[in-house]
């Protein structure tokens, strides 16, 4: 425990010393304040603490859909754009030197000559690297939690699901960064590798979605709307689906992991948050739930999304841990 605390305290001090950590924290706070500035009055939604806004029949002070709208902004815009995209890039850049610097000549020797096994030291270092994402998301969610109470009037602890989900998503990329960092001791190589895997995961997901839509609905997206496939073409997509989606299965599900938040966040403590309901509300003014869309969004189980991603992470960590333990310093 003493050793674990030593490594974690060191990681905290490292973060405190990095300007990017404070910049990211500052932007997080700003985003949280902007979120807090969204409110509801008797006419509709207000922005920037009432400086502007729009009238809505459904979205007004005390209306049942106000909380859903407010959570929608949190889970679909802020978490998806800021916490799981820009903040993750900044976290990766900040944490990238952790292993290469630790393994530099004259640096690793002191730690390795202590009564701590290499594999333990490796995992302590690895876990301490998750602190950035944990602290950023934790602080952000705490502000959001208070904002919901202030603007909607309910305590909604389900927003804290964002913390483990964003940390989990970051951990997939962090494992790649660690594996490449341990192997090459290069900060640049590890950043590029993790971004490459992230990009690859995004491409794989896009391809899987295309194949699934073609196989299930016989439609593919086209320049204008969608294009109907023939039955033979649709059957072809069905037959090829498992091959086409192989990369998706093997790679970490970065966006799907964060999107699990939409399944876990609850409205008014019990009602499940529905993306289609919110989208229809925004598009037509009527909060109609589309079961087909909801089923499509939830076609992969939580176990598959997290399990297969963790399997990828386990492979990366096994390789990184093996390299870390085997090499001479």
């Amino acid at each position: 425990m003493r050793q674990f605390v030593a490594v974690f305290v060191d990681a905290l001090r490292l973060l405190r010393a990095r300007a990017l950590f404070w910049i990211t924290l500052g932007i997080s706070a700003l985003a949280a304040v902007l979120y807090l500035s969204i409110g509801f009055d008797e006419n509709g939604v207000t922005f920037l603490f009432g400086a502007s806004g729009f009238e809505s029949e459904f979205l007004r002070e005390g209306s049942p859909l106000a909380e859903m709208f407010y959570l929608g902004i949190f889970s679909m815009i802020i978490v998806n754009l800021w916490l799981s995209w820009i903040a993750v890039i900044l976290a990766l850049i900040t944490c990238a030197p952790v292993f290469p610097e630790f393994m530099a000549e004259g640096s690793a020797g002191v730690a390795l000559s202590k009564p701590i096994s290499r594999i333990k030291l490796f995992f302590y270092k690895y876990l301490s690297g998750l602190l950035f994402a944990f602290l950023q998301t934790g602080i952000f969610c705490a502000i959001v939690f208070l904002a919901i109470r202030l603007q909607v009037g309910t305590w909604n602890p389900s927003v804290f699901w964002a913390v483990p989900l964003v940390v989990l998503m970051f951990s997939y990329l962090w494992s790649v960064m660690v594996a490449v960092g341990v192997r090459t001791r290069s900060v640049m190589a590890s950043v590029l590798a993790s971004l490459l895997v992230w990009f690859g995961a995004w491409i794989a997901k896009t391809v899987e979605e295309y194949a699934w839509t073609a196989a299930e609905f016989g439609e593919v997206p086209a320049a204008q709307g969608s294009m109907r496939l023939t039955e033979a073409e649709q059957k072809g997509w069905r037959d090829r689906y498992s091959q086409v989606s192989l990369a998706y299965t093997l790679l970490p599900k970065t966006s799907d992991t964060v999107n699990l938040l939409q399944r876990l966040v609850t409205v008014q403590g019990q009602k499940k948050f529905a993306v289609s309901e919110l989208l229809n509300l925004m598009a037509t003014g009527a909060p109609v739930r589309d079961d087909e869309v909801e089923e499509a969004l939830e076609r992969h189980s939580v176990g598959f999304i997290i399990g297969s991603s963790l399997a990828f992470e386990a492979v990366m960590l096994a390789f990184a841990g093996w390299s870390f333990c085997r090499r001479d310093y």
Partner: peptide, 21 residues
């Protein structure tokens, strides 16, 4: 010997002490 630049002398000694239990 290369100890992290962000640590003070006292913290460096404390970090090693932690690893040495």
């Amino acid at each position: 010997a290369r100890f992290p630049e962000y640590l003070t002398g006292r913290q460096i000694v404390g970090f090693t002490a932690g690893l040495a239990k």
